[in-house]
Simulated assay, not measured.
Amino acid sequence: MAQPDALSTREAQLDPFPWYREMREESPIRYDEDRECWDVFRYDDVQAVLQNAEEFSSERPLTAQGENETGGMALETMLNTDPPRHDELRKVVDDPFKPGAVKHLAPHIQDITNEYIDAVVDDGEMDIIADLATPLPVTVIAELIGVPADDREQFKQWSDTIVEGPGAATVSAETVREEQLQAQAEMATYFTDLIEQRQEDPRDDLISKVIHAEVEGATLSEGETLGFLALLLIAGNITTTNLITNAVRCFATLPDGIESVRDAASLELAIEEVLRYQSPIQAVSRIAATDTQLGDHDVKAGDRVVAWNGSANHDGDQFDDPDTFVPDRSPNQHLAFGSGIHFCLGAHLARLEARTALSTLFDRFETMQVSETELQPVGSSFLYGVQELPVQFST
């Protein structure tokens, strides 16, 4: 997904919200000639696009080289399929991510969190991202998938490369694309070897579950299997990493800092407000399945439509005082996890990981404040977060 020119600078990537407001007021639905796509900014319109899978498809057309329209490998996943295939694929891995199943992971997630904090507790300072927000969700999802512990750092590098956007990179778009294809190819090779191992020696993990699953009486294709595993790995860590990091940033702006959200009830509401105020995923794209209309605009079949849920979550018609972080905001019908059939499969897990990480920080640290530093945005056209977030704390 290409970066709009308006978000090409470091400052705009760290604070895209004034541009969103301008677009909602002046061009709530517009066609970008340079990016060859429609942009949608208002809450009602974004929600309509996300919920209408018949008119706004998630399927991606393939090039002659077998790539999708983003330049990536043509792996089949729930994200780029429509019903009924989407529903069939989602059922394969739906159970492990339901609230009841996720709840059983809480003690283990707590143990993992404590291990990472134990490693830095005597230092008085840490990088929230490198020391906790990255390794925690990577470890959790890697264990669920069945990835050996020694390989998890490599998986993080692959996922970071695959979601990197050319707009925020210091190298050319072509170089970024080549690096992404290389990372995807390496990941596919890795998973292919692991799949062969699990076919001979099944275990209690998602790899074994996916490769032995039957949909309509048949096992999944190689592309579907690889797509499943890649999607679970990447989506299973990038959202939570940015959610934890953005939460620490947001809480630091409150008059009483972390004191405002120490108790469980306050923290739960505050996390929902982080999801609204600084959504880890800022935009998703769809393809018009037929000639249709968006507002007063005629959209042709095959046109790409980018739904800016990061903008929708700041729409004053939906949220009072939308540009203020209100930790106890309720109700809070944000679109951070999407809407409709593609609502984020891992939403419950992401919330649990964030609650565990943040509550543990607050329990073990008496004070915590963000260090003065020049923040750098993540290199992605659709993610919102920073590359490093150093903090100082006392116990």
Rank of each mutant, 00 (worst) to 15 (best):
T9P: 04
R10E: 07
R10H: 05
E11T: 11
Q13S: 09
F17G: 03
P18Y: 07
P28D: 15
I29W: 05
E33M: 01
C37W: 01
W38Y: 03
V40N: 05
F41A: 07
Y43A: 02
Y43Q: 02
E54W: 05
E54P: 05
S58P: 03
S58N: 10
L62E: 14
T70A: 12
A74S: 09
L75F: 12
T77V: 12
T81C: 06
R85G: 09
D87T: 14
P96R: 04
A101V: 06
K103Y: 12
A106K: 15
P107W: 09
E125W: 02
D127P: 00
A133D: 11
T134Q: 10
T134R: 09
P135F: 01
P135E: 02
E143G: 04
I145T: 07
A149E: 15
R152V: 04
K156G: 08
W158N: 02
T161P: 04
V163R: 07
T170A: 15
T170L: 13
A173W: 10
V176Q: 13
R177F: 11
Q184N: 10
A185E: 14
A188I: 03
T189M: 08
E196P: 05
R198N: 08
R203A: 15
I207S: 05
I211D: 00
E214M: 07
G217F: 02
I234R: 01
A235C: 09
N242E: 11
L243Y: 11
I244V: 13
N246K: 02
R249Q: 15
A252P: 08
I258N: 05
R262F: 08
L267N: 08
L267D: 12
Y277D: 08
S285E: 14
S285L: 00
T290C: 05
G295F: 14
G295I: 12
V299Q: 07
K300P: 01
D303Q: 05
R304T: 07
V305M: 08
V306W: 04
D315E: 06
D317G: 15
D317L: 03
F325N: 10
F325L: 11
V326E: 13
P327D: 12
S330M: 06
P331I: 04
Q333Y: 12
G338V: 12
H342N: 11
C344W: 06
G346I: 14
L349N: 09
L361M: 15
E366T: 15
S371C: 11
E372P: 00
T373Q: 08
S381R: 00
